[in-house]
């Protein structure tokens, strides 16, 4: 079938403003948007720039705005979309070129919540045991692939680029709820600030955007509850 694409293009060396260009390619209804984009790049215009890596919804590098929603281009099928398929880069970041955005600020916030196991005790002989119930508490948030679909769908983040954002909170939640971790207090200090979880207005865009179906707002709610109950 014929697939009509409307792609936002921007070359910082020649363009003052981003603009849209139309492309038409042949693809199967069961192909993904990424396939269509790679057809454009391979057959029509080699200068089209986008990030992709595994192309199977795991690496999280091809998050983009497709028909007004943040999606992974490698996960969404063409038959599920209205044509022309409008493809834009994620909102709220500086565009480097075409669909590639500068994610340094995103990863700075990710690093700011200390997304690694913090343990002050010496490592045991074997593993650190954990019951299935303890593991269950953070199971949902282990699924995050850092694609930034949630953070760039968040109106609080659009209006305040300093907001730590849902993705970083999800990552913090994963370790705060982990019974083997001892850095929970540090992370709660970081998230309890005004640019932390309190910026969240429970808009739920993050939940809708997450390609891994993480219940992001629930995780943020759990962090809020932790912050509240450690003060009382």
């Amino acid at each position: 079938m014929k697939v009509e694409l409307k792609i936002q293009r921007y070359n910082p060396e020649t363009d003052a403003q981003p603009h849209f260009e139309n492309y038409s390619v042949e693809a199967e209804p069961t192909d993904r948007v990424l396939d269509a984009l790679l057809q454009v790049k391979g057959l029509l215009d080699g200068s089209l720039t986008l990030r992709k890596s595994c192309a199977h919804g795991i690496c999280g590098s091809d998050g983009m705005r497709i028909n007004g929603r943040n999606l992974l281009a490698c996960k969404v099928l063409i038959r599920n979309l209205q044509q022309p398929i409008v493809v834009e880069p994620m909102k709220g970041f500086k565009i480097i070129k075409d669909l590639v955005v500068d994610m340094e600020a995103f990863f700075e916030k990710y690093r700011s919540v200390k997304p690694y196991l913090i343990q002050n005790e010496a490592a045991p002989q074997k593993e650190r045991p954990q019951s299935p119930q303890e593991r269950e508490r953070f199971d949902d948030t282990t699924k995050c692939i850092l694609c930034a679909c949630c953070t760039t769908a968040c109106p609080s983040f659009w209006s305040d680029p300093d907001y730590v954002g849902p993705a970083a909170i999800v990552q913090a939640h994963r370790f705060i709820q982990d019974s083997r971790d001892q850095g929970g207090e540090e992370r709660l200090d970081i998230l309890g600030d005004r640019e932390g979880v309190w910026r969240c207005r429970t808009i739920f865009n993050c939940v809708e955007a997450c390609p891994r179906d993480i219940d992001v707002t629930a995780a943020i709610g759990e962090v809020k509850r932790k912050l509240l109950f450690r003060k009382i």
């Binding site: 700075e108 309890g192 600030d193 640019e195 509240l228």
Partner: peptide, 21 residues
Amino acid sequence: HYKSGRPIPYDNPFELFAWVF
């Protein structure tokens, strides 16, 4: 501040109290 100019958060309970209030 971080390199990007974002303020480094510290333990400041004001927003927590505002939220609960």
